[in-house]
Design a protein around this nucleic acid. Sequence first.
DNA 1: TCTGGGGTCCTAGGACCC
DNA 2: TCTGGGGTCCTAGGACCC
Length: 428
Amino acid sequence: MIALVDCNNFYASCERVFCPSLVGKPVVVLSNNDGCVVARSNEAKALGVAMGVPLFKIKELVATENVQVFSSNYELYGDMSSRIVSVLRRYAPEIEIYSIDESFIKFDGVPDMVNLSSQMRSIVSQWTGIPVSVGLGDTKTLAKIANHKAKKKPSGVHRTGTDSIVDLVDLPVDKIWGIGSKLARRLRSVGILTALQLKNASSALVRKIGGVVMERTHQELNGFRCFDFDQPQPRQNICCSRSFGRRVEKLEQLEAALSSYVSTAVRKMRAEGSVASGIQVFINTDRFNKGTLQYHNSAAGKLPCPSNDLLTIAHEANRHLKRIFREGYAYKKVGVLLLGLAPEGLQQLPLFASSVRRKKNGRIEIKVKRQRLNEAIEEIASRLGKDAVTLGLMPRKKSNPYESPWHLRRERLSPQYTTRWEDLLLVN
DNA sequence: TCTGGGGTCCTAGGACCC
DNA sequence: TCTGGGGTCCTAGGACCC
């Protein structure tokens, strides 16, 4: 049996834990730059606030209904997420963290799963303050469907079997995990509208319409596991990009933003102990602003040799940016991807690299000085915060973030209750 | 005025090999 | 008239997920 534990309205619930006066009120959490709604409390859903709607489109509703609006506080949500996982681990021989608010748990051979799930659910709630729902099924796909049903039950726990006709008969195909809008449209065109119809369709037909991907989903609906538990793998790619608070036209400002994103991406990569073999840089104008000239382009290339050296990568990124930058556009976004990630130490060294030395003990040492520099940067950042040491291209933090137009808008940010001493709540 | 960010997997097609 | 068969690797693009 597989359980899917999913936090209810996760970001909105996190805000509530430390601000109980929000309980019972409509709460929404916004995407970066305070752009779109990405989480809603039940009360906000009841008011008709749609997932992904831009804030400016619901401004009136926010005012008339007194909707509580928050910027994304990823420091808080990330920390709450790991607390929840640590509670789940007490119950779970095997757990796969699927996203910031969802985990799969393997419970093969455990009797009375429903009872255990209820227990687990109330402990998570008691210890972290976050409400979760638990879906149970023989496959991940069925556990997902069960979770869907669990969300609507007061008990918050539901089991879906391959024989649970009632769970499948009225479930539209696009609500199935792995079936998005495109595949759903193709299925509807051959008269398959519900999960039950898909389950009972022939493998050949499913294969023809949706390829091997949908065939796996089809198998899973019939109780055959196709998606196993993944071991946490180091990532293959790391991407860092942001939309700007305002439009940006100057190359220097794009360079500043890009080098800041490169720093973030390289920090993540180094934390995973990986090196990148290539990078890609992309820039976009504002696709929503039809009135202005549009331009989007990207440039990619291999690094001279696989590396996790900040200065090398920042330099390459900047070179790519210059290749694709065009004068006369109002840019909205820039980003960098680190590609072809592999564990450090396994990479092939360049044949004639002069910077490679062999030490007495036989270990190969690459660019010793640069390595020390990177370690020093990390050390400073870990003690004094990630903005304490920056590349020369990036302006130092200033009192008014809008002096550099690419900075994020985060006007409704709650405190980092659990990760910053200054933000700890005071109890009288 | 204002519309997010970060991933994975699969497939098709091109370039190349013998 | 008629032009093979089997591979690998890479990239771009599409589809999906949260």
